Amino acid sequence: MQIHTLNSEEWTKAVAIGVAVSILTGLITLVGLKAGISPLPKPLGLAFAETLWESALPLPVGLLFHAVWVTGFSVVYFLLFADALTFMRAFWLAFVLWIATLVFFFPVVDWGFLGLAVTPKVIVAAAVLHLLFAVFLWGLARMTFGARIENHSARA
Rank of each mutant, 00 (worst) to 15 (best):
L131P: 01
A117T: 03
H130C: 07
D83N: 15
L57A: 06
L24F: 13
F104E: 10
V70F: 04
E54T: 13
K34Q: 15
G45F: 01
L52S: 13
M143N: 11
G36K: 10
P107G: 09
F136A: 08
P39N: 10
F81E: 05
L129G: 08
P41V: 07
H130V: 05
A49D: 05
V135P: 02
F105V: 14
A35Y: 11
G115N: 01
G72S: 13
V96F: 14
F145A: 08
L137T: 11
V19Q: 07
I123N: 02
Y77A: 04
G32R: 03
W53K: 15
T86Q: 09
K34R: 14
A125W: 05
V135W: 03
V76T: 12
V128S: 06
F133N: 01
S22K: 01
A49N: 05
E50N: 11
F95I: 10
A20M: 14
A82W: 12
V31H: 07
A127P: 05
L59Q: 12
K121W: 13
I99S: 10
F145D: 04
L63E: 05
S153G: 11
E50R: 08
F145L: 08
F78W: 09
T101E: 08
L79H: 05
L129R: 00
P39Y: 06
A134W: 00
D110Q: 13
F113W: 15
F136K: 00
L59A: 11
G18W: 02
V76W: 08
R89E: 10
V61R: 04
P43D: 11
A141H: 00
I28E: 05
A141P: 00
E54N: 15
V108Y: 15
F65R: 00
F136D: 00
F104M: 13
F81K: 02
T25Q: 04
L80I: 10
L114Q: 04
F133W: 10
G72Y: 10
F133Y: 14
I17G: 00
P107T: 09
A126K: 00
F133L: 12
G112D: 03
L97M: 15
S38T: 07
V122M: 04
D83Y: 03
G26D: 07
